[in-house]
Amino acid sequence: MSSEVGQQHPLSIYFAVWVGLFIVSGLSYATDFLQDGLMRWGLILLFMFVKAGYIVAIFMHLKYERWALIYALLLPPGALLVLVGLMWMESDYTWLTRIEYFGEDPYAVAKPVVH
């Protein structure tokens, strides 16, 4: 059990993850040049989770901890998924009622940005 004597791992792992994070960050930055759409949003989420996974698993050493701790930390945020999911539905509903009753323009686009 490695954690008993602290988290000692070869430096090469960190360098690999470090480089990996740079690459994935570059990729997620690149999504900005894609058209809005499922593809782009999917990639944003994918790269986000890959990066988050690397950080939590390797840099924060969660991967090397015992399952007792891993589960204790990863299960509670499930409650957040419920919150996010329901608030997504809820906010869509609010938006629809606004369009419906206040006659606001659902297709309005933001004004162009001039620096």
Binding site: M87, S91, T94, E104, A108, V109, A110
Partner: peptide, 17 residues
């Protein structure tokens, strides 16, 4: 972040790019 998602979705004004 959930609050951000909610206000961004509910507002009928367009979201700046």
């Amino acid at each position: 972040l959930t609050a951000y998602m909610t206000v961004r979705t509910t507002t009928a004004e367009p979201w700046p790019n």
